[in-house]
Design a protein around this nucleic acid. Structure first.
Length: 352
DNA sequence: AATTCGTTCAACCGCGACTGG
DNA sequence: ACCAGTCGCGGTTGAACGAAT
């Protein structure tokens, strides 16, 4: 015989609370408190509710110290930090945010923060950076699938896009590497890289990415992707892939900032580099749009993944990619500057 | 204007932890 | 040590609402 449920009383009201019920509950608790027994409370207060429901209503809604309104950026940041340390311990997290309930924080996490983290390629469970580099590492297979579908132009395009994206990632790594530039902790913080082991994942995957950029990775089982003249030339072929003096690491700081601007969202916040004083408009680590990041959910099956990716990145009409890896687009005449601009600029730098 | 779809959040449910007899 | 009652937590649900079609 199992334990009888708390709310097995017949005729006990459920659902949304009426204003009169709220009034009764508040008046009773103000007069008598709730320490003795939640179970007895509704009977004594003249409420047709179970004690559990009363407790929930009080702690999540009627308590006088509850803070109302949208969570501030500081509170958001604190939640993310605490969640990375504590996991789904909403009650513990809420003790660090006065006036916020565990339920509110849990809801806010599930409806806002989780999605924001996914958008910038951070796994909300592990708090590690995953998607971009995971997808890049699978790019050879995806390119093979593209080529097999007979769309080699788009495959080449993807390859070129991968080069551009790789260079941006390199730039980000450069930004975070003290030997090259003083660490920009503000930028790193905003990217969620300071507390995240993802930075090290990022660095560890360098060699694999290098191979991809140099065109040395076979794509598919029986095909080798032809090199892309001009684009692959951006990376000095004489530089050993293992060398720390990769030409990309010598991209000037301004170029780096330009790359970051390119990958940033047109939001209201700004990113200021404390070293150079350069301010990058529209940079918001938690507000980067899906349009400039990889899809948050990727099909499990390799075939589906490839098909989705190809359809998304190339589209049935190559000029209007509609889903998938939308951020990779070399021809963006409507924008202030494009990936092509960045590559052109980078090319100029490499030649000088 | 009507309908569908997506998002939000208050409230519920079930389970484990705690407590007192 | 055991047990029943109670509390608190975290996952889930569904009504309400706004946006899109």
């Amino acid at each position: 015989m199992g334990r009888s449920p708390c709310c097995d009383e017949i005729h006990v009201k459920k659902g949304p609370w009426a204003p009169e019920e709220d009034k009764k509950l508040v008046e009773y608790i103000q007069l008598h408190g709730h320490r003795r027994s939640w179970r007895e409370l509704p009977k004594n207060a003249g409420l047709n509710r179970c004690g559990k429901s009363c407790r929930l209503r009080w702690t999540n809604y009627l308590r006088p110290d509850i803070k109302r309104g949208k969570l501030s950026e500081e509170e958001e940041g604190l939640i993310v930090q605490l969640h990375s340390a504590l996991g789904n311990k909403w009650s513990k997290i809420s003790t660090h945010l006065p006036g916020r309930t565990d339920n509110e924080i849990k809801n806010y996490w599930n409806t806002h923060l989780r999605k924001k983290l996914l958008r910038v390629g951070i796994d909300p469970v592990t708090h590690q950076r995953t998607t971009d580099l995971d997808l890049l590492s699978r790019l050879p297979n995806l390119l093979a699938a593209t080529a097999k579908l007979g769309n080699l132009d788009n495959a080449l395009r993807l390859h070129a896009d991968a080069v551009a994206r790789y260079q941006m990632l390199k730039g980000l790594i450069t930004l975070m590497t003290p030997s090259v530039l003083p660490p920009n902790t503000d930028a790193m913080n905003r990217l969620g890289l300071l507390a995240s082991p993802g930075r090290y994942d990022l660095l560890q995957q360098n060699d694999q990415l290098e191979g991809l950029v140099n065109g040395s990775l076979a794509f598919g089982q029986d095909q080798m992707l032809p090199t892309t003249p001009g684009l692959l030339g951006l990376v000095n072929p004489n530089t050993p892939s293992s060398s720390h003096a990769s030409p990309v690491s010598r991209i000037p700081h301004e170029m780096m900032m330009m790359m970051m601007m390119k990958s940033s969202y047109d939001g209201s916040s700004t990113l200021t580099d404390s070293n150079s004083g350069i301010t990058t408009p529209g940079f918001s680590s938690l507000d980067m749009p899906a349009a400039h990041s990889t899809p948050s959910s990727v099909s499990v099956s390799p075939e589906n993944e490839a098909a989705d990716f190809v359809q998304g990145a190339c589209g049935t009409n190559a000029s209007t990619p509609s889903q998938g890896w939308q951020g990779l687009n070399l021809g963006e005449p409507d924008e202030d500057f494009s990936w092509k601009d960045i590559l052109d600029q980078t090319s100029w730098w490499e030649e000088s």
